[in-house]
């Protein structure tokens, strides 16, 4: 019987404690800067090296680009199929210019499967939203120089 009473004491001790839960849809959780949500993309930095598409374990990235008059590669399409993306972060890790990054968007419920095929426009909007939300985490401008060097 003693054990039972002891246990009851613990339960009663919990009563006056502060709540630890978050009222989620009204209160948004705060994510650390390394958080791996849906991708965001900065087209100006991309050098179309295709490394992200090659490292992707599920082959969910498809991209294409072309060479302009200065023999510089420009990204044209960049699609991520979120039906199969596992948010593993390997594409972000291999990107030499940090053109592909991850945002803090984690709400992925959609009405149709087609909405999970994210194109470049969506990803750029995601980047803009992120920059607005975290102005201090904006990409550093030096990265652009790296991109030009990396291209040569």
């Amino acid at each position: 019987m003693l054990g039972f009473v002891k246990g009851l004491g613990v339960t009663l001790g919990q009563l006056p404690k502060k709540k630890v839960t978050l009222e989620y849809p009204d209160v948004q959780p705060e994510w650390p800067d390394r958080f791996r949500g849906v991708h965001r993309f900065i087209p100006d930095l991309c050098i179309v090296c295709n490394q992200c598409a090659r490292i992707c374990p599920t082959d969910c990235i498809t991209l294409s680009g072309s060479r302009d008059e200065n023999r510089k590669m420009h990204i044209e399409t960049f699609d991520i199929n979120f039906e199969i993306c596992i948010l593993c972060d390997l594409c972000v890790e291999v990107c030499p210019t940090d053109a592909i990054l991850m945002s803090d968007t984690f709400e992925l419920a959609v009405e149709s499967r087609n909405h999970l095929k994210l194109d470049m426009q969506w990803l750029v909007e995601s980047e803009e939203e992120y920059e607005e939300k975290y102005p201090d985490r904006a990409p550093k401008l030096e990265a652009v120089d790296v991109a030009e060097k990396g291209e040569g």
Binding site: P32, R34, F35, I86, C88, D89
Partner: peptide, 24 residues
């Protein structure tokens, strides 16, 4: 874990030869 590797369940934190990132 979320702070060190950015995920809450599927961490993908270790790499062959080390870890993905140093502790923040």
């Amino acid at each position: 874990f979320n702070r060190i590797c950015g995920a809450r369940l599927t961490y993908n934190y270790m790499r062959i030869g080390g870890v993905k990132a140093d502790a923040p």
